[in-house]
Design a binder for these strands. Structure first.
Lengths: 110, 110
DNA sequence: TTGATGCTTAACCATATGGTTATGTATGAA
DNA sequence: TTCATACATAACCATATGGTTAAGCATCAA
């Protein structure tokens, strides 16, 4: 059942592939919680466009939204990023190997 | 000039957002170099579909293709993944902080 | 209660994405 | 030379994506 994990990576990487969405996440990392309108303010695109980005982000589980009165506050839930990191980490080992092999080629040690 | 780096992340994350492309990269990590047709064999989709995925991967700089005679061999170039890792790493610090704060709440140490 | 604020939904649009089949081109083998 | 192999290109299709404007619905303040 790798399928489910696959879908998580699909949604996580797809969510991270847009600069506006990465900027939204960065905002949320700097100032812990923000309302939807506060999040939207720095951007030149319309509110509905921001809403769609937030839908994608919460669909990927990267943020959570809680409604209090008429304002919705967003906060990071960075856990899915950990899975993305784990996947990429596999390849970090690949570069490391390449670098090590290069190093071994120059000087012999164990 | 963050714009250029932005585009690299766009293309890298977008490339990684597809399970077929991730599978292709995994193939290339396991068996160092592979021809296009060898890469395509395990998949049920058509060769042109695979070719398009390879275009995306090399467009993101994640693979390089070299032609020898009539066969094209592909190999990993994992460097752009490092940038993706760096970006995600920023957020790993965020989780770590949260976990540390939780830990500090339980037991006091420096 | 009236109106502004904060978010949501709907309808629409252009372009991108991920796939197909069909056809073309160059190379290697017989 | 002839044919199969290995890859490339073209034309097409359905759906997804990222944006818009317009309109709607709660809620808080006056």
């Amino acid at each position: 059942m790798v399928k489910h994990q696959d879908a998580v990576l699909d949604r996580t990487f797809a969510a991270l592939a847009d600069p506006t969405r990465r900027a939204l996440l960065t905002q949320l990392e700097e100032r812990k919680v923000l309302s939807v309108s506060a999040l939207a303010k720095p951007f030149s695109i319309s509110l509905p466009a921001i809403m769609k980005h937030l839908d994608v982000l919460s669909g990927a589980g990267l943020i959570t939204r809680t409604k209090a009165g008429r304002t919705v506050t967003c906060r990071l839930t960075a856990e899915p990023m950990e899975q993305a990191m784990d996947w990429l980490n596999h390849y970090q080992r690949f570069w490391s190997e390449r670098l090590e092999r290069l190093a071994t080629f120059v000087e012999e040690d164990q």
